[in-house]
Design a protein around this nucleic acid. Structure first.
Lengths: 127, 127
DNA sequence: AATTACGTTTACGTTAACGTCAAGCTGATG
DNA sequence: CATCAGCTTGACGTTAACGTAAACGTAATT
């Protein structure tokens, strides 16, 4: 434990550029320690990066990912804030469930498309 | 059948601006008939729009959506093209399945986050 | 000591996906 | 007939998410 990563370590591991990591930091999505001005990432930073990139793959903006990450750690909040947070979480979950439906529809469409392709192949072969 | 739509009909139905529809046309994603210079959309156009917007919700670029839509109609292709198309379809499906996994992970994370929220609420109530 | 390899900040450039005018045409309506 | 709503085609503006290049510091290697 206590593993630490350079900017290059993370860039290589997650296949992003160092520019991207600096940009995420500029936007407040990451805030690695500095060793004499040099960025030094913790496992927590690494996890946040994973979440950001997962969000990206799902089509979220960086701001959305940022907001979601904030939901993960409900420390030091009063009751009203916690209730508001639960609202937001449920809303985001509903959005994701809608997205799940879209995704299955597209998978179904692709299956149909492949079937039609194979049908076309049959005729193409016959001649 | 044979229903036709004005640019406003579609814009209102799908909650996009007319600018968006013209932009999609400019990019070759839609090509409605013209009645005396005025755009006149068919059910096929409407379906394509639905597919484009579904792609957007899944985080696809317009070009990706465009490519996928091309896969849906394998008319007039030779054997090699059909085989290549099947390859593409399977590749896209694999990507979507990866995305499905990301999505379930995020749903799981959100559930966990909500649980932690409710835990915090308990303590907040106790005092 | 000079080169190489990596890091830093600063700043301007780029692309996708539209938004936002401007200027004009067209058909219906008071 | 005037005017108004709704369509058209440019054309320039905007934002997110980086890319790219300049100019510099530093540590290790030759």
């Amino acid at each position: 434990m206590g593993t630490r990563y350079s900017i290059r370590d993370l860039a290589d591991e997650f296949d992003v550029t160092t520019r991207t990591l600096r940009f995420y930091e500029e936007k407040g999505l990451l805030s690695p320690k500095r060793d004499n001005q040099v960025r030094n990432y913790s496992n927590a930073d690494r996890t946040r990066l994973r979440l950001i990139l997962r969000g990206k793959r799902l089509g979220l903006t960086l701001e959305e990912s940022s907001n979601i990450i904030l939901m993960y750690d409900p420390v030091n909040q009063n009751t009203n804030q916690l209730l508001a947070l639960i609202e937001k979480i449920q809303e985001k979950r509903n959005q994701l469930i809608e997205q799940q439906k879209d995704l299955e529809l597209m998978l179904q469409d692709l299956d149909d498309a492949e079937q039609r392709c194979r049908e076309s192949l049959k005729f193409t072969d016959k001649r």
